[in-house]
Amino acid sequence: MTRIIFFTFSFVICLGYQSFGQDDLMAEFEDFGTNVWLGSYNKFRLADKWFWRAEFHYRRGGYGDTPFIGRMSQIYNRHAINYFVNKNLNISLGAVVRLDFTGDPQDDQLEYVVPEPRIWHEYLFVMPWPRFQMFHRIRIEHRWSRRNDIDSEWIYRDRWRYKFYMTIPINKPQLVPGAWFINPDIEIIMQSGSPVVNSPLEDLRIYPSVGYIVSPSITYTAGLMYTTGQRLARGHVYRQRWVARINAYVSLDFRKQERKVPSIRTTD
């Protein structure tokens, strides 16, 4: 695990050094944008080790004169097959279709919505502690995207994502139903590909949140995320956003009943 983190940081620094080395422009930070992301994260247990992941995001945001979350931004539809290797490693492989909505619906030069397919795979490393859980997530996405401009070209990029987060119970000693928890979360998203010239750092997300475990099947979290990252074509320009996020985590067990219910002790 330590090696992976070291590798990732080395990679990011090298890319950054390279990009800054090629251009003498000064870094610029855009004004904060505002967004709200509503996410539904679902995991359906198909077998003892196999899950089906189905995640949806409904994202809105402000644009120009459009107020805070007045504009439809994106809809995510992410699916994957998830394999539970052991209690420390979890692997997923799947596809995403993201729908990007136009920033100016009045502009007829822009398509109202453009799909962005992706293939993604994820490696989640779990570090259990007596009182909390610590996670290292590496997700790699292979994405095909185009702008909303009519007749714009498809570009291909790879995304390299590393995320570190924790779940720390507040009101109970364990993460059990009824437990409130805090969820420190930080993720760095790097990108590569031919269109990426001097903007390898696509996004840096700092996302503290608070969660509540309703039941083993349902958990909610809410938090405010700060993100910043380089614009693809103008690497010296950094976008900044505040994103209010509300997520629901749902897990269902689709196995047969007898496999779900443990045997009962009825006698001494």
Partner: peptide
């Protein structure tokens, strides 16, 4: 006992 695939913990249900 149910495994919570998000918290990666077992929970009673």
């Amino acid at each position: 006992t149910v495994f919570n695939p998000y918290t990666f913990t077992n929970m009673d249900e």
